[in-house]
């Protein structure tokens, strides 16, 4: 064990890691293995055909692009919202705080239907955008809007506890020493919040890539234009093409895994550097 991990006096490593890995295998890895095995029943040629099918490529571009954009929007606005909720007091703060989780609790179909109702050309917001030639519902913008809503709780709820725990006295100390507002933000707040912000960003992004229920209502679903990758999986399934569906699912999984792993490695590396600098 000792070469595998660094020594620590804290107890419970074997138990907690063992349980986590067991549970992970039983619930996640074995079922996902079924997906991989299903994909493996298809030959290389067929797999490459799926991979380079222009429709698949177009849908991947939309799914990953819109998710990235939505996660970025969430990174910025999620930080602003978390900051506002934690640091400022104003009427209705607690209620708004409690409502942040709603995109999770509402069935995705309901979010999709409600967003479409709001952003369609006859909706409250859509009708004010239409005169400027901005169409949200049934375009790629609609996809981004839906994914932003879906991802919002991830970012806000990740940053919030970190902001709460940010050592206020450290800030105060910096301030009494005469550090400017921007310096406090850059040197103290940002480093503490960054891991949580990255976590939230990653999860919002990952969730967006796979999201189906809310997007199909607002996207328009036109092949090559507003067709998301999960819809292609459904389409394959409707033709009883389990293997094709599994192949697209597997591809999405691999891309997501690589992106998640990169961000997690980046974080681990960043933390080590941070710890090293601190000591």
């Amino acid at each position: 064990m000792s070469s595998f991990r660094q020594p620590s006096i804290l107890p419970g490593f074997g138990l907690t890691l063992g349980f986590s890995v067991f549970f992970l295998c039983a619930l996640v890895l074995i079922p996902l293995a079924a997906l991989v095995m299903k994909t493996a029943t298809m030959g290389w040629d067929d797999f490459l055909n799926v991979l380079f099918d222009p429709r698949v490529l177009a849908s991947f571009r939309l799914s990953f692009g819109a998710s990235l954009l939505a996660a970025t929007l969430n990174g910025i606005f999620g930080f602003v919202i978390a900051w506002t909720l934690v640091r400022y007091d104003f009427p209705g703060r607690k209620l708004i705080d409690a409502l942040i989780d709603m995109p999770f609790a509402l069935p995705t179909a309901v979010s999709g239907i409600a967003l479409t109702a709001v952003f369609a050309e006859n909706g409250w917001i859509g009708e004010h955008l239409a005169p400027f030639g901005i169409k949200v519902a049934y375009t790629w913008i609609g996809v981004v809007v839906a994914l932003t809503l879906i991802g919002l709780p991830f970012v806000v709820r990740s940053i919030q506890p970190a902001l709460v725990e940010v050592q206020r006295d450290l800030e105060d100390a910096a301030e009494t020493l005469g550090a400017g507002r921007f310096t406090i933000f850059r040197r103290i707040i940002l480093p503490t919040v960054t891991p949580a912000l990255l976590t939230g960003f990653t999860m919002a992004f990952a969730r967006g890539v796979g999201e189906y229920g809310s997007v199909i209502f607002i996207a328009g679903n036109l092949p090559m234009k507003t067709e998301i990758a999960p819809l292609l999986i459904v389409i394959k399934l409707e033709q009883f093409d389990y293997v094709g569906a599994a192949a697209i699912g597997f591809l999405m999984l691999v891309i997501s895994f690589v992106m998640l792993l990169s961000i997690n490695l980046l974080q681990t590396w960043g933390r080590r550097r941070h710890v090293a600098a601190g000591r």
Binding site: E121, Y138, I216, L222, P223, V234
Partner: peptide, 21 residues
């Protein structure tokens, strides 16, 4: 001439009647 392809028949009906598309 089709701006939206809903996934099911009722979805299309709702798009046509409710969303006025």
């Amino acid at each position: 001439h089709t701006p939206v392809l809903d996934s099911g028949a009722r979805g299309a009906t709702n798009t046509f009647v409710q969303r006025e598309i």
